[in-house]
């Protein structure tokens, strides 16, 4: 497969070098170990937010480092978790004395590496809390699986917790915001095409020219169902239906509606999806209080989208509107 890269083994390093050059005012980048750190870190007296995961989901997480969002991101190799020594280094680099929140997506590798890092950081006297985000309704949550995957709600949690931390709130309260987001957000995605990891150089999964995968994961994990491609409006119903039923979101609820592109879908199509999502929700008496449309948590060049809904209250709406200055998300400043 054609890719705009130099060599597969250089992809993550070269991306980080580019990010550093493009956004020198917002972030500092370390190449050994890999980390993206807020330019003015550590911010004394502020709870610091650290997230991370495999690369390939840009702008998440490195693009969300900056004022009002993350203090550091730890990128692993493509679709591979970062390592504990790397997460520890980031945790130490941003600790401003008020403790550090680890925002972890629910994947076994991410959880194990962040757990080990948190143990090491605590041994060095840093207060660390970790919250796991698990919002993908495509996965049946059961004792017999690794549980729901962390997807779109992660972006929202990072923004909202970043705002709470910027207000000077203590670690426990910032962690509570994250837990609240996880409790009240649900997501589901779909793919029109597979992603292609640079090292493999071929599609992660085979999908026919006329097929789509409903419930896809952000690493190309299989979803609930494979079916014939349908019009955008039908796809919205296939995604938003299970999302609404799961929480459930009810008539009278106000939501943040997040239509996310998976990397290979143009904005023109995402707005077509948003148009129908808005109509779909209105038909159920659900009010869209805030929205986000764009490609924020991606799966390399996968074509497709995900829909995330978060039940809003005044407090979350206020945190959402607070200023944010990062490479990937910027407003109010």
């Amino acid at each position: 497969m054609k890719k705009l890269i130099n060599a597969p083994e250089d992809v993550v390093r070269e991306e980080l070098e580019g990010l550093a050059l493009a956004h020198a005012g917002m972030v500092r980048v370390s190449l050994d170990p890999y980390m993206v750190v807020r330019a003015d870190a550590p911010v004394l007296g502020k709870v610091a937010l650290v997230s991370g995961g495999g690369s390939g989901h840009e702008p998440m997480h490195g693009g969300f480092v900056g004022a009002g969002m993350l203090d550091a991101a730890c990128p692993g190799e493509v679709f591979t978790s970062p390592t504990p020594d790397q997460i520890l280094a980031a945790t130490k680099a941003v600790d401003g004395g008020a403790g550090v929140l680890h925002i972890v997506k629910n994947y076994t590798g991410d959880i194990l590496n962040f757990e080990m890092a948190a143990e090491l950081a605590r041994e060095e006297g840093i207060e660390v809390e970790a919250v796991v985000v698990a919002d993908d309704v495509a996965v049946r949550d059961s004792l017999y699986t690794a549980g729901r995957r962390g997807v779109g709600a992660t972006v929202l949690a990072e923004k909202l917790c970043g705002a709470a931390a910027a207000e000077g709130r203590p670690l426990k309260e910032v962690a509570d915001v994250c837990r609240h987001v996880n409790d009240f957000a649900r997501s589901m995605g779909m793919a029109l095409t597979s992603c292609v990891t640079p090292s493999a150089g071929r599609p992660t999964f085979d999908l026919g020219e006329d097929e789509m995968e409903i419930g896809i994961g952000i690493h190309g994990e299989p979803g609930r169902e494979r079916m014939k491609v349908a019009p955008a409006d039908d796809i919205v119903a296939l995604l938003a239906g299970p999302v609404v039923e799961d929480l459930p979101f009810r008539a009278g609820d106000s939501v943040l509606a997040f239509v996310n592109g998976l990397g290979g879908t143009p904005l023109i199509e995402l707005y077509i999806v948003y148009r129908e999502l808005h109509r779909f929700l209105a038909g159920r008496g659900i009010l869209v209080g805030r929205n986000l449309v764009g490609s924020y948590i991606t799966s390399l060049e996968m074509a497709g989208c995900s829909i995330t809904l978060l039940k809003l209250d005044d407090e979350l709406a206020r945190l959402w509107d607070a200023p944010v200055v990062t490479p990937g998300l910027r407003w109010g400043a």
């Binding site: 692993g76 591979t80 076994t108 194990l112």
Partner: peptide, 9 residues
């Protein structure tokens, strides 16, 4: 520090 994923830890 080098394996990553779940296998490293």
């Amino acid at each position: 520090s080098t394996v990553g994923g779940a296998s490293g830890p």
